[in-house]
């Protein structure tokens, strides 16, 4: 958690390997492997997933084609047609996504809520080891927030998934219970604690962490 402009998204994108960031110091490792040595797709194959705050539109590429291509890349082989269709349908149903969604182009003309549900759908199918959820709660109404949160909890319950949830607000923490809370300000972790730290932030805000 942290105030606007503290560098939360920068951290998330840097870890995922966005080309506009150059990492000049420090290290990122996943199960002992040097993440910074990997290309963007290798990071995903190693088990890293970034749910983006502003998912990118990819014109002319259908959701079904995209999901299938991604799953094929991550799993190292094309999923069996018979089981794949059912797997996607089930994941979509649990996130309250209409099946007609498959034929739409990736993120093109999606509402804010649809984009976020689509991100969680990918997480569910790609089964990463660690997921960074960058303000997945922003722009969601109460119902969508609940559906998305349940999706995160479901994936977590069914796998060894670790989640780093980036948020300004404690609202989503009513649905997703954190084990640890880190306060991020001016590009650094300035305080760490348990769930009780989130309650304190809700009450007092970030003022004490922002130094002039």
């Amino acid at each position: 958690m942290g105030p606007n402009g503290s560098g939360k998204s920068t951290l998330a994108y840097s870890i995922a390997g966005h080309p506009k960031y150059l990492i000049t110091g420090g290290s990122v490792t996943l199960d002992g492997a040097d993440v910074l040595e990997m290309t963007v797709d290798e990071r995903a194959k190693a088990g890293l997933f970034l749910a983006m705050q502003y998912p990118v539109e990819v014109p002319g590429v259908s959701v079904s084609n995209f999901l299938r291509t991604a799953v094929t890349a991550i799993r190292g082989e094309a999923p069996k047609v018979r089981t794949w269709v059912g797997e996607v349908k089930e994941a979509m149903a649990s996130l309250n996504i209409d099946t007609a969604f498959s034929e739409r182009n990736v993120n093109e003309g999606f509402s804010g809520g649809e984009k976020k549900r689509h991100e969680i759908l990918q997480m569910e199918l790609l089964k990463p080891k660690i997921a960074i959820l960058d303000e997945t709660d922003s722009g969601l109404d109460v119902d969508a927030l609940r559906i998305v949160s349940e999706g995160v909890n479901r994936v977590k319950a069914n796998s060894e998934l670790g989640v780093m949830l980036i948020t300004h607000y404690t609202r989503i923490l009513r649905y997703i219970k954190p084990d640890f809370v880190h306060v991020f300000a001016n590009g650094k972790i300035v305080e760490e604690g348990g769930p009780e730290l989130a309650d304190k932030l809700e009450e007092k805000g970030y003022a004490e962490y922002i130094t002039a």
């Binding site: 966005h18 797709d41 995903a44 983006m52 995209f66 991604a70």
Partner: peptide, 9 residues
């Protein structure tokens, strides 16, 4: 970047 971040080479 978006596609690569989903494992697509």
């Amino acid at each position: 970047f978006y596609l690569q971040s989903r494992g697509i080479p």
